[in-house]
Design a protein around this nucleic acid. Structure first.
Length: 475
RNA sequence: UCCUCCUUAGCUCAGUUGGUUAGAGCACAUGACUGUUAAUCAUGGGGUCUCAGGUUCAAGUCCUGAAGGGGGAGCCA
């Protein structure tokens, strides 16, 4: 019966028999094995007896997997509370140290580790990142479940391309070299698997709205796909998104939900992954030391998370945001590259100024001009703005995008016509407005951006196990 | 997609004005070592200087192009 290393390190007593299995992180002095099984950041020290079979000892190398039977005892040395006095060591899998790229004393770069993503889980950094990622995913389900939300599985293959959230990946079984064609020469998708053109989903929102019109509160949490040629540290072609949708909620309820949600899951991670987050805090601090003074962030990672937990998000309207920017020293000194005036979409530099310089905390911006937002967002009484909301986070930018949805059929149809959204393809969506429509609101949160924020990592490719980006789909 | 920077040993990096046989730390191998903590000590092996052209008596170093990567921007989550 195997015991997890985390369990042994958490127990207060000693002098009991255990079996542990894991991977060797280091082997010192022909005597001390640092063993890790991924259950926690810390290794356990295994002490081997004099006279252990030399054939076995020679195979205890960095990266090798072993099984150890022995006794947990109070450590005879400094540096750890307990250790395992080994009675029997079995080599499960040898590791050719000459070829194994991970060594404790090497400092491989994150970029290099990305090329060996199948092995990077065995490093402290990625062990911590993906344990935190797991905890966040669990906390998300727990948050919604505790509040009576139904987890709705929206389709991954979709015929809907009406939302316009981005370029889509086509799904087809038609032959590439000689697809069936119509008389006008266009490809005849009626002969395709689904008898129509289909794509990978860019968002589950429209389908989530259908569920909210019956269950009152639903959420989706699944993969989404965007075929944009985006090469940045904040974009992936395949990423996971959380999209709650709540009937009877207005934009203020929506903000309250989003804020409570973010605070809850961060708090859950801080509570359950403290060791990992403290390691990541130190890692980030070490990385920051490489930067010039003026580029360093004012807060450490743990400090930042505590700050978010203890401070309300700032809430402003788009119009107020524009005023702040127009009156900012940065604007007066012509520091902004892009023009600032009412009606523009806020650029990265504007969002960064508001979040990182002006408010120095997460900011919720609402009531955007209708022309820069999607057709389904609810028109405000001024007829110029819509009840949209974006949550902007320091270092990440937009982490949440949401809105109160337009529940009035005539207004929705009018907006769809203005924005050239094909109403006939979305008749199922419009049915919700025909049959017992209610005010409702929801938002989308990019899971990897949340993981970035919580782990203090800076590249989104380092917080998803196997990143898919333009030109890259390894593993 | 655009701008910009980078590519030298398994990894992280030096490499001066274009000039002899391209270096260091770590890793790895061999040996020593039973209380180590990124263990330590000794010895040793390890290079198509990303690739393809070009300039030159001479190119890791200069020029052109390609590929890969980083940072920033756009699109967004």
């Amino acid at each position: 019966m195997r015991t997890k290393i985390k369990e042994i390190l958490n127990r207060q007593d000693t002098d009991y028999q255990v079996n542990v299995k894991g991977w060797v992180r280091s082997f010192r002095n022909n005597q001390f094995i640092a063993l890790n099984d991924g259950s926690c950041m810390a290794n356990i020290q295994v002490v081997i007896e004099l006279g252990t079979d030399e054939h076995v000892v020679r195979k205890i190398t960095n990266g090798a997997s072993i099984s150890v039977d022995g006794t947990v005892i109070a450590s005879q040395g400094k540096g750890q509370r307990v250790e395992i006095k080994a009675a029997q060591i079995t080599i499960l899998g040898e590791c050719d140290t000459d070829k194994f790229p991970l060594q404790l004393k090497n400092r491989p770069s994150l970029e290099y580790l990305r090329e060996i993503a199948h092995l990077r889980f065995r490093t402290n950094t990625f062990g911590a990142v993906f344990r935190v990622r797991h905890t966040l995913a669990y906390a998300i389900h727990k948050f919604f479940n505790d509040r009576g939300f139904v987890y709705l599985h929206t389709p991954i293959v979709t015929a809907s391309d009406a939302e316009g959230a981005g370029e889509m990946f086509r799904v087809t079984t038609l032959p590439f070299d000689n697809p069936p064609r119509k008389e006008d020469g266009s490809i005849n998708f009626e002969e395709d698997f689904f008898a129509r053109s289909t794509n990978l989903t860019v968002s589950g929102q429209l389908e989530a709205e259908l569920g909210a019109m019956a269950f009152s509160e639903v959420y989706t949490f699944g993969p989404t796909f965007r075929a944009e040629n985006s090469n940045t540290a904040r974009h992936l072609a395949e990423f996971w998104m959380i999209e709650p949708e709540v009937a009877f909620n207005d934009i203020t309820d929506n903000m309250d939900l989003a804020e409570e949600f973010i605070r809850y899951i961060i708090g859950y991670a801080v509570e359950h992954n403290r060791e990992d987050l403290e390691f990541l805090t130190q890692r980030l601090a070490d990385e920051e030391k490489q930067k010039p003074m003026n580029e360093r962030s004012e807060m450490g990672l743990m400090e930042k998370l505590e700050f978010v937990l203890n401070n309300k998000f700032e809430r402003i309207t788009y119009t107020e945001a524009i005023d702040i920017l127009l009156n900012s020293p940065a604007y007066k000194k012509k520091k902004f590259q892009y023009e600032v005036k009412w009606g523009i979409d806020l650029q990265s530099e504007h969002e960064r100024y508001l979040v990182e310089k002006h408010f120095k905390k997460p900011v919720i911006v609402i009531d955007y001009p209708k022309d820069i937002k999607a057709f389904y967002m609810r028109m405000n009484d001024d007829d110029k703005t819509v009840a949209a909301m974006d949550i902007l986070a320091p270092g990440i930018g937009e982490i949440v995008g949401g809105s109160q949805r337009e529940e009035r059929l005539e207004k929705l149809e009018k907006r769809m016509a203005e924005m050239h959204v094909p109403a006939e393809e979305l008749s199922w969506y419009l049915d919700t407005r025909r049959f017992g429509t209610v005010p409702h609101a929801g938002f989308g949160l990019g899971f990897e951006r949340l993981v970035l924020f919580v782990t203090g990592m800076t590249n989104i490719r380092d917080v998803i196990p196997f990143p898919r980006t333009p030109g890259k789909a390894d593993f």
